[in-house]
Nucleic acid binder design. Structure first.
Lengths: 157, 157
DNA sequence: CAACAATTGATACGGGGTATCAATAGAGGG
DNA sequence: CCCTCTATTGATACCCCGTATCAATTGTTG
């Protein structure tokens, strides 16, 4: 646990360094929101984020939660997940283009890149070209049961 | 144009027949909302749908617009599109599992299935398995410039 | 046509997210 | 270390979207 807290703080300060590098100020509010995001450790709704922030520091205003969320999203460090009933957001630690596998039971996500699978990436583009489109981008989200939840459920998953 | 209107009415009544088959009543409100959806002919936000409905028949209540939208969505005849800044919905005419290509310029969508591309489909599942997940479902949305918009833009697209 | 239930429109409500704005507090220079 | 300048903040009010409610209406079935 203290191990986890240690890692969390490292993640938070690396995010903060990124902000500072681009001329954003390191403020108490941002620190608190980032800490809350990292400590949640899994995709969160805006409501969950608000609660987590309040737990860390009740003096941070609601508006700052949304402002920081928007800031991180605009920098590609937080992404919206699709197909969850309610919109959820997740921290992205990989810089490059990537996708998510979301566990339909515990809700945790895992990032993956397609570099090992160049076929897939080029197939998606090729598919668009086959329809006469000029490919620009795509969204691919995968849903399944993660290894941990499979174990919990027993062999008849 | 009257050709289009004729086709629109056919689509609307085929949707209505589906509803009737399952015991839903054919009401004025539903007819108006479906007509508005079909006549929009491209992905729409809820606001656009409200406006279109009002244009067709101003006496239809706001609640019924949302009720009909939810009904169609629950039947898989309308799907939410992802990654649009604002949520958008689109009519789905294909029954089977399919995806959308959305033009980033005109916003129109086109459905496509992966049957010609079984590789891709099984690759996505295989990819999840490779990470230890039990694949359940996925979202794939493709964005690009459609043939018509490419022509408009000239050869330097 | 009668009767029953599904559906509707109007209304009010709630919650999420934002615009506003005076007050605060970073960051950098002296 | 303090000063200044401006980004950022917290509080508030506000707006808008979607929904719960409910009496009135309208499909449908027999």
């Amino acid at each position: 646990m203290s191990q986890n807290e240690f890692q969390s703080q490292e993640v938070v300060s690396s995010l903060e360094q990124g902000l500072a590098r681009d001329g954003f100020r390191l403020t108490r509010a941002r620190h608190v929101v980032l800490t809350a995001m990292v400590e949640l450790g899994h995709p969160f709704s805006t409501g969950e984020l608000e609660q987590a922030v309040a737990r860390v520091d009740g003096s941070v205003g609601r508006a700052s939660v949304y402002r920081t969320l928007a800031l991180m999203e605009s920098r590609g460090l937080v992404e919206k997940l699709h197909r969850s009933g309610q919109e959820h957001y997740t921290l992205c630690l990989k810089a490059e283009h990537h996708h998510h596998v979301t566990c339909v039971q515990c809700g945790r996500t895992r990032e993956f890149a397609l570099k090992d699978n160049i076929d897939l990436l080029s197939t998606v583009d090729g598919l668009a070209r086959g329809l006469g489109y000029l490919p620009r981008s795509h969204v691919l989200e995968v849903y399944g049961v993660c290894p941990a939840c499979q174990k919990l459920a027993g062999p008849h998953a």
